[in-house]
Computed example of a mutant assay.
Amino acid sequence: MKRRVFLQTGIMAALVPTLALAHGPTRQKVTLTTKLAAAPADVWAVVGDFQDMSWHPAIAATTGTGGNEIDATRVLSLGAPDGPTIAEVLYKYSAEKMSYSYRITDVDVAVLPVTNYSSHLTVTPLDGGGSLVEWRGAFYRGYPNNDPPEHLNDEAAIAAVTGVYQAGLDALVERFGAAGS
């Protein structure tokens, strides 16, 4: 009995380093914020409609169904109305909290190198006036296996999501003005 336990322990000890090296990708996270000079209600009036993402410079058209109801869908056309698309579904919405959460249901990783992506957009008041917009997301890289190609690795996924968020937040600053620090 002792020998069998010893052998099992030895086998497990030998496998642990191999198992540690064999893990897949880890969930990545990006959070960006910006301070705007406008009141939260004014900002929410622009960003709070899940069916209208015209405020983002990369979005040429948004089509969808369900308004701001849970399980509403939208398809974002990038660059041009007939450009590449990203399909999304709304899974949390609160006009009162000025916040919504959605996930991507279909995207070509050549367009956005992520998988299993979810995101949250929130507008909150700043002390002394103005708004804070927070856009955060969690996702896996576009290549789910080990040794991803460079354009589908963690760094590429983080850079792409950061670029999307930054472009949207920059457009809001251009529209509403930046709030003082």
Rank of each mutant, 00 (worst) to 15 (best):
E96W: 00
G48Y: 01
A156S: 08
D52Y: 06
E150A: 12
G83K: 09
Y165T: 08
A157S: 06
T85N: 10
V133A: 06
A138H: 09
A160K: 05
L78T: 09
P57S: 08
T162G: 09
A95Q: 13
Q166Y: 00
V123N: 06
R136H: 12
D52M: 11
V47A: 06
K92L: 11
P149A: 03
R141D: 03
A80G: 00
Q166E: 13
F50D: 13
V47I: 15
A38W: 04
V161F: 04
R74W: 12
T115F: 00
L112D: 07
T105I: 14
E69T: 14
T105M: 07
S118F: 01
G48A: 08
H120A: 06
Y165M: 03
P148K: 01
Y91L: 03
A87D: 15
V109F: 02
R141A: 12
L76I: 13
P57Y: 05
D52S: 14
F176T: 05
A41R: 06
D49Q: 14
Y102E: 13
T73S: 14
L36C: 06
G177C: 07
T85P: 11
P149F: 04
L152K: 07
G66E: 11
A110D: 15
S101Y: 01
V114L: 04
D127R: 05
T124W: 01
P57C: 09
L126I: 05
M53K: 03
G137Y: 02
D106W: 00
I86G: 09
V164M: 06
G66S: 12
A58I: 00
E174A: 13
N68I: 08
L78H: 05
V43W: 03
G64T: 06
R74G: 14
M53D: 10
Q51W: 10
A138N: 13
V164N: 07
E134Y: 00
N116M: 01
F176R: 08
S54K: 12
L36S: 05
D82Y: 01
P144I: 04
A159P: 02
N145F: 05
G168P: 05
N116Q: 02
V43P: 04
L121I: 13
N68M: 07
E150Q: 03
E134N: 10
Y102F: 15
W135G: 07
G168E: 09
M98C: 11
P125Y: 02
G168H: 04
Y102P: 14
I59E: 06
L169E: 04
E96Y: 01
